Amino acid sequence: MENFTLREPRYRFTGHERVLHDVSAANALPGLLSLFGYERVFLVCSRSINTKTTIVEELSACLGSRLVGLTDEVGEHSPLSNVLKAARHARDVRADVIVAVGGGSVMDMCKAMQLCISEDAYDRDALLKLQFVLSEDGTEMLTTSRAAPRIRQIAIPTTLATSEWTPVSTPIDDETRLKARFVVPDGSPRAVIYDPAILGQTPSRLLLSTGIRGLDHAINTACSSSPHPFASLLAEKAIQLYMENLPLLRGRASREALMNCQLATWYTGMGQMSVPHGFSHWMVHIVGPYGGIAHSDAACVLMLAQARWLDGWAEPQHSRLRAALGQPDRPFHEILRELLIRLEMPMTLDDLGLSRQRVEAMMRPALEHPMVTLNNLRPIRTEEDLRAILELAWKA
């Protein structure tokens, strides 16, 4: 028998026990808590969700005495200082579950909180010692935590970027402005509640940009350097759903369009941890904190640049995607460019408000990042390669 290597196709199940689709979160949450035996809820949400919507008020009413703590101190990219403060708060109120209401920053924070509580790591240095390592062949992120998980989360997503589907957490280190990198044991939510009415309260601009981030995840899965047939099948369906439904989210979105976009995140999430992703997925972790740019906005620009970079190098993959989208004769990057124009999303680094000098300062961190230069279908190994693909990100 041949030896198994991590580059062989493999499927990685991320541990969700329930996914509820097209339901009211306020109606569904109490039943889930009873099913799992949870009695003490710590709720984490963004400041805008807490102050500009009725979501927290409705969830608080359905939770009643089960709600023992709440924080909306998350912040963009979930700074470690906020993670540690919230973890201590959840510990002190003896929470037995975290309920995450929000997008990527909220869920990143909750996963990192789980790691703090499981490892008794309540200061910066102790937490940073738990960053992930790479598998021997560089295709998979592996946890360094060995403690038994003490707490899980239930996720109620308000965006479309798929953070609810991974155990990976990348909060920003306040001191260095670099992303910390954790793979949290049982870090994926135990349950996900997809409520289209809650999604519909998210501002349209944010909904669209996070949808592009989800689309970028799906494209990276479909065009992976080590693909898996099941993951590719799911990704191709997700790409169809995103492309068809994201334009319908502009203005007052229909319930059907919201539901279809949530299905797209579900399909994307079910496969994205099974295969290594390339440049556009990881470069946002540099452009975001160094440029003060939201991940989802950076994803718009880098997704397009990567599609141009792979033109002619990913022909079988792009051919399948073009056919699935009913545009077999157009370059894939042109299809993506047209979508970004329709959605009025950024297409260039200049659109993000970045100068060439500022992007130049990102070169070294990008080259030193453990994933930016790995697992690209068209290799990105040298500074010259990195400059070449970033040059495509200046092109409208």
Rank of each mutant, 00 (worst) to 15 (best):
V93Q: 13
I98F: 15
I98W: 04
M107C: 00
G102T: 14
C110L: 02
V99S: 09
C110G: 12
A100M: 07
V99W: 11
A100Q: 06
C116D: 06
G102C: 15
M109D: 01
A95T: 07
Q114S: 08
V93A: 10
Q114I: 04
A100P: 09
R94H: 15
M113D: 04
G104L: 13
V106I: 13
A112N: 09
S105P: 11
D120H: 14
E119D: 12
V99A: 10
M113Y: 12
D92A: 14
M113C: 12
L115A: 01
G102F: 14
M109I: 04
S105D: 11
M113W: 12
R94C: 12
V99M: 10
C116L: 01
K111E: 02
S118M: 02
V97G: 13
S118V: 00
L115I: 08
S118I: 04
A112Y: 06
L115K: 13
K111V: 01
D108E: 04
D96V: 05
C110N: 12
M113S: 09
E119F: 05
E119R: 10
C110F: 00
I98Y: 10
A95R: 02
A100E: 08
C116G: 07
K111F: 01
M109P: 01
C116F: 04
D96F: 06
D108C: 05
A112S: 15
A95D: 04
C116N: 04
A112L: 11
V97R: 13
D120I: 03
V101A: 07
M113E: 08
V93T: 15
L115P: 11
S105V: 04
M109Y: 01
A95G: 07
V99N: 07
C116P: 08
V93I: 14
M109E: 08
G103N: 07
D108N: 12
D92G: 01
C116E: 05
M107K: 01
D92C: 02
G104N: 10
A112C: 14
A121W: 09
A100R: 07
V99Y: 11
S118P: 07
V93S: 12
S118H: 06
V99R: 06
I117E: 00
C110Q: 06
V101Q: 03
E119P: 06
L115F: 08
V106Y: 13
C110T: 15
Q114F: 05
M107V: 11
A100F: 09
C110R: 01
Q114K: 11
D92S: 15
A100N: 06
V101T: 08
R94T: 02
A95C: 09
D108S: 05
V106Q: 13
V99D: 08
C110K: 03
D92K: 09
M109T: 04
R94F: 10
V97T: 13
S118F: 00
Q114T: 01
L115V: 02
A100C: 08
A112H: 06
V106A: 14
I117M: 01
V106M: 12
I98P: 06
S105N: 08
M107A: 03
